[in-house]
Nucleic acid binder design. Structure first.
Lengths: 200, 200
DNA sequence: CTTGCATTTTACCGAACGGTCAACTAGCAT
DNA sequence: ATGCTAGTTGACCGTTCGGTAAAATGCAAG
């Protein structure tokens, strides 16, 4: 294990929960460095700027998701629409466990950052957009499979996928405003009622 | 017109577009004072803290909405489900015009602030929650009317209203991530497909 | 043993942060 | 005219912000 790599990942590890639980602007480099046991000069050896750090943090969160819940949920062995149930459940249990540990519902870091920085940093916005885009693809593939299998009536899979992603983010937002993961539990299942019809 | 009132409202007027287009943490008192032509000491004569300012800003936005688009959309003279069409259109045109003027899609300031500060300031969160709660009531009343009129099949009006509000916020979030109000145009109408069934 | 590079330390930069304070001004009521 | 008060001014507080520069250290290859 390279020492350099270790310092870099300690920085990221210290930054992740902070950006998630507070906000980009509210978390300072100094605090991250102190928590990671790293000097500020060292920080800037590995990250040219604060933005580069948050970019790396976002990547880590994205990987974590892609290899965790999301991979489980979108398991091809599952019937397509059950994958969506699984994902919704995972979102609920995740937020619930965060609240139990942390006392707060932190929501989705991608949504959080999107609303905070989209107007101020196009590079960061592009990164977030790419993540949403991948998420949308997962939904889309699932919907197309469900249509092919006759589980659901034909629809505009692309737009419905986007709508479902939007709905999920919106439900998490509302839950965060109430600091209550149960909002996810009672609203999120309705995601399957969303439909955008195919163009004629 | 009281001079004091004028200073206070100049401060709020200067703060509104800034909090909307950037974020709570990213906008400083000093900048607001300069733009409003007010000394910092004067600012703190009217507002005990930055948080009290943003509280006032949120109130102003809420009033603006309640007396503008929202009042028009939820016009009792309109057939219930058409009110939702109207609201969705209003959200689209509003964001579109903001982008034309500002070059950016700014999204919903209530959603923006919710994700930024909910974990850090319960008073602010409570204010935002109250606004969402009122919005939900509008949807709920509309849905109940639509059910009574037989326009739509019976459903859980309360939860469906919450779901619709969540969806709207989610659509705006996704649109902001793409800096493109057309996302609202193509996704938001699907709001009417959302349904939470009544408990048995 | 030396050269060279990656990493780390330490001290520092100017600017901005939210907020405070005491002095001052103006208008109004007694 | 005097006293009270709401409003205003401008200087100031300590702290933190993101970021920089240079010197020191460790380590590995030649």
């Amino acid at each position: 294990m390279n020492i350099a790599t270790d310092t870099r990942s300690r920085i990221i590890a210290a930054a992740k929960p902070r950006f998630h639980s507070r906000s980009y602007a509210n978390v300072g480099i100094q605090e991250i460095c102190e928590s990671a046991g790293v000097q500020k000069g060292s920080f800037y050896h590995f990250f040219p700027s604060k933005r580069d750090l948050v970019l790396a943090v976002v990547d880590e969160f994205a990987d974590e998701w892609a290899n965790g819940f999301v991979a489980e949920a979108f398991d091809p062995a599952l019937p397509p629409m059950e994958r969506i149930d699984y994902l919704v459940d995972a979102a609920y249990f995740w937020q619930k466990s965060i609240k139990q540990v942390h006392g707060r519902m932190l929501g989705c870091i991608f949504g959080n950052l999107t609303l905070e920085v989209s107007t101020q940093d196009d590079i960061l916005r592009a990164k977030l957009l790419a993540i949403f885009s991948r998420a949308k693809s997962r939904f889309k593939d699932t919907l197309e499979e469900a249509v092919a299998a006759g589980t659901i009536a034909p629809l505009d899979a692309d737009r419905t996928a986007e709508a479902m992603l939007a709905y999920l983010e919106g439900v998490i937002l509302l839950a965060k405003s109430q600091n209550d993961p149960e909002v996810i539990y009672r609203l999120a299942p309705a995601i399957k009622t969303l439909r955008v019809e195919s163009a004629a």
